[in-house]
Amino acid sequence: MDLRFCLLPALLALLLSPPAEAGKTLDAVKARKELFCGVSTGLAGFSASDSRGNWQGLDVDICKAIAAAVVGDPSRVRWTPVNAQQRFASLQSGEIDLLSRNTTWTLTRDASLGLHFTGVVFYDGQGFMVAKKSKITAARQLANAEVCVQSGTTTEKNLSDYSRAQNLKLKPVVFESFEASLKAFFSGRCRAYTTDATSLATILQREVKNPGDYAILPELISKEPLGPVVRRGDDEWFAIVKWVVNALIEAEELGITQANVDAQKASGDPAVLRLLGVAEDLGKSLQLDRDWAYRAIKAVGNYGEIYERNLGSASPVKLARGANRLWSKGGLIYAPPLR
């Protein structure tokens, strides 16, 4: 018995190290005073960490807002980077409370993966990126081309649909991780790379030495509504995630910003007073306190500010808001009434 079962204590410690709770997610988050949030392994604009482990991006700000609303502190988030294939398993296993990772809402995912999409935080569409020297300027010129894609995403199926509809005979080269698919494209293995168009734009901005060497083709081949995802069977938590996001949108409509949120508490607008918990206690029905929306806005600003900071004019990508404008300004972003 030379090799006695020596590492057993260590093993047990490892297995039991990340205690999370399925079922009553809200109670668990409140008890541990920390939100477990699943994000991407690194996609600038949505969720990416710098070398010091600080996470930034639109998806990241959603998590911070929820942490601020529920726990009271936007920094109380444990970030778990998950790849495309593992993301739903991570949520199901209870490793994360919330998946906020540029994830497309589809019927199959919503109905058969044991989870619920709480809404849309970003409207995107799938596009193609090519090297400029290939002289391809439109997707229909891609006939018989190899296209690099990442496994576990909606892009694989969209690509096949488009290929069949346009009779292009595209050949997908499928990789298990984002990093591997990107690496293969930049090594010149594929004529085109396909993923959500906004991701392509941030990739062009952040991951390419000379952005002028590559071009994003004008065609969008799919609808990609991205949103946060929670486990099925926990209605309270579902409602909280849904309404915190709605509160951020409502704040933009009402003109409440990170900077003026304190001043707005003295506003004459009843809708503002209701949202900020001055006049009414909306938090109660969500099992939160009355300042929940105030804290979320104070932490990350309203939806428009989040957008501008991560993807819009204040970011390196400088994407126009397009479909992600408020409904009142011709876009699709709309929050049901908070009352």
């Binding site: 297995l15 190290s17 990340p18 999370a20 079922g23 296993s93």
Partner: peptide, 17 residues
């Protein structure tokens, strides 16, 4: 995650181990 009883969860490190 499907085999474990409800309420008991485990991180990816533990599962892979």
């Amino acid at each position: 995650p499907l085999f474990l009883p409800q309420g008991l969860t485990m991180g990816v490190l533990g599962r892979v181990l």
